[in-house]
């Protein structure tokens, strides 16, 4: 058994110096070692606060300077609509992110002032779909309605729904899992009693991803919930790491 964390971040020094527990990737690696987590995806606070240009540059630089981090951390890439030309064409964006070994995409439409509609992001989402590149959709940041609209407009997009909130979200997440085959769901706030087993029995083990929600949450609580869920060992392996590894093969 090993664990690949599908929801870690942000790290780095924010404008308010919060959070401070993961100022660099060194602290992240130490925290992963303390919990026995082998790999993680990650995003940098500057991707949100300072924008895609500086944020993407900082995370790539940090990983390039630390060989162990480069091996164990899969960076997320921040994008904005290509129509302004600031980030280059959609093809260039995908080429650059793959060259940087970025496996997933983080978006901040609210903060970066753009709209999640085909007119704005359709070209990029089409290429992400063709290349099987998953996009994080945070419930905490955008709310369920926006996530539903996004899936309605981009039904084949690969997405990782994260930060679902602590009140059992099954009435909201399950229709998405059933109707959109590329929807995945991470566990950092999926705390309801017996829910992991219930979802696995209802729709199979392929769509759940272990996520810790670090740094806000520690990594261990959902590890134990997965380890002792009433599901097969194969299902546990898929949730702990297998599904995310498959997803990142692009």
């Amino acid at each position: 058994m090993h664990f690949f964390d599908a929801n870690c971040g942000p790290y780095g020094l924010s404008e308010n110096n919060v959070p401070t527990i993961f100022p660099t990737v060194k602290e992240i690696l130490a925290d992963m070692d303390a919990a026995g987590v082998e790999k993680t995806t990650l995003w940098h606070i500057s991707q949100k606060e300072m924008g895609w240009a500086l944020g993407n540059k900082l995370i790539v630089k940090d990983l390039n300077e630390n060989p162990e981090a480069k091996k164990r951390i899969s960076p997320s890439w921040c994008v904005v609509p290509t129509v302004t030309g600031e980030q280059g064409s959609a093809e260039q964006v995908v080429k650059e992110m793959l060259a940087a070994n970025a496996g997933t995409v983080r978006i901040f439409p609210e903060d970066h002032r753009w709209e999640l509609y085909p007119a704005a992001i359709g070209d990029l989402f089409r290429l992400f779909t063709e290349n099987h590149i998953p996009v994080y959709l945070s419930v905490k940041a955008m709310g369920w309605d926006k996530i539903y609209r996004t899936m309605y407009m981009f039904p084949d997009l690969y997405v990782i729904i994260c930060d679902c909130g602590l009140w059992g979200p099954d009435r909201r997440i399950r229709p998405l899992l059933v109707n959109y085959k590329h929807t995945y769901f991470e566990t950092s706030e999926y705390w309801a009693a017996g829910s992991i087993a219930d979802t696995v029995h209802a729709i199979g083990p392929d769509r759940l991803l272990y996520g810790s929600g670090a740094p806000y949450y520690n990594r261990g609580s959902m590890m134990l919930a997965i380890q002792h869920a009433d599901i097969s060992d194969e299902a546990k392996e898929l949730i702990a790491h297998g599904n995310l590894e498959r997803l990142l093969q692009h």
């Binding site: 705390w191 309801a192 009693a193 017996g194 609580s221 590890m223």
Partner: peptide, 11 residues
């Protein structure tokens, strides 16, 4: 049944 025993114990 809001939260899972093993999640809580793990925490």
């Amino acid at each position: 049944p809001w939260f899972d025993e093993h999640q809580g114990i793990g925490g």
